[in-house]
Amino acid sequence: MTMREQAVWWLLGLIILIILLVLLSNVLLPFVLAAGIAYFTDPLADRLERRGLSRVLATVIVTAVAFIVATIALIILIPLLINQIQLAIDAAPELFNAAREFVETRVAPLFDQDGALGAALTKGLNQAQSQIKDISVGVLQGAWSVSLAGFQVVALMVVTPVVAFYLLLDWDNMIARIDDMLPRQHRDEIRWLAGEVDRVLAGFVRGQVTVCLILGGFYALALTLIQLPFGLLVGFFAGLISFIPFVGSIFGGALSVGIALFYFWNDPVWVVATAAIFAAGQAVEGNFLTPKLVGGSVGLHPVWLMFALSAFGALFGFTGLLIAVPAAAVIGVFLRFSIGKYKQGALYRGQRGDSGP
């Protein structure tokens, strides 16, 4: 089989795989989550095996620990976050009133003595306020619709750990079977690519998840300690989106400082403290967490990450958002490999005897 024929077959297989993923996107979520859990916990199971435990016992221990930790986290965090969301919905009209008062009394006079700017800003806020009740009702109706899908949620919570357990139990055997089916002519290159993919995923996804959790916990705890309204919700959200560099700190910082201006205008020390929390978080992330836990050799550009989130979200919905970051890392490995091959080929170097300039 020629190289062109092999390329055609590989491309055809990739197209069929993408079509199947799009068609089955509605049922992929528990299996994607289970595969991610198995992948992330496999090194721990391997370590327990090296200490003399059987694979079955190692899998049971890892699964039990993960289940206990997840249960404790859900019991503690979910009620708090739901309460914060409900408070945010209830307080939305009050926030708009505060924003309108802030614009009319403090912002507009600084820029426009005639009040034209203030009138325009106030009009916009009034229109937004007139819609806030409809938005709140829509959010509550959406939450009710989600609650009606309780069976699917229960199924997700049951299917995911079961599938993750069996994948973790058989992970090494599956890798061995896949390795045995590799085409012998390209086995070394495929193994090298697989090693690069694993290195990138281990260096970026595992490390970045840890960074996001640390930042989310820090922001939530610090904002709660200074008694910023909705500080727990804003802090966790800012931490969770920190896998896109600077976005989490900038968005979370802007939102938190905006809330602090409304509530702590007469006590600017707390406004400064709010800004200082995100400045400190960004400093710790850039100088310690990311270099230590993620490393600088992954090569994922922030623009590429944002594009991957948009593209995979459009193709696969919520499941796409979950796989966007690891998929971007994997695609980046293949692109760098392809560019390396291109630079070694005749198209880049030119054939001997060419009369070009």
Rank of each mutant, 00 (worst) to 15 (best):
D267Y: 11
L221T: 12
D112C: 07
V303I: 13
F334L: 15
I244H: 10
V294W: 10
G299H: 05
L221Q: 09
A238K: 03
A7P: 00
F40G: 03
M3D: 10
Y39D: 05
F111V: 12
A314C: 06
A327C: 14
S310C: 05
Q185R: 08
R50Q: 11
M181P: 00
A279M: 15
Q113M: 08
I323V: 13
Q131C: 02
V103G: 13
R177A: 09
V69K: 15
H186L: 13
G286E: 03
V103M: 15
I241K: 10
A260V: 04
V62K: 01
A99V: 03
I89N: 08
Y348R: 03
F236D: 02
L117Y: 09
I18V: 14
G52N: 09
M181A: 09
M306N: 09
V333Y: 04
I259R: 09
L24F: 15
G353S: 12
G239N: 09
W265I: 03
V103E: 14
Q351G: 00
L11P: 04
Q129L: 15
L201P: 02
P245E: 06
N126M: 02
L168Q: 12
W270Y: 09
D134C: 02
T105F: 05
Q185L: 08
R199Y: 02
Y342P: 02
D188F: 14
Y166N: 07
I18A: 14
Q6T: 01
L232R: 11
I132V: 15
G296R: 03
N287E: 14
F243C: 09
Y39G: 09
G320I: 00
F102N: 12
A143W: 01
L289A: 06
L193V: 02
L77E: 04
L221W: 07
V8L: 12
L125V: 14
A273W: 03
V32P: 04
A283V: 07
Q208F: 02
A35S: 11
I15D: 06
G317S: 05
P291G: 08
L81Q: 13
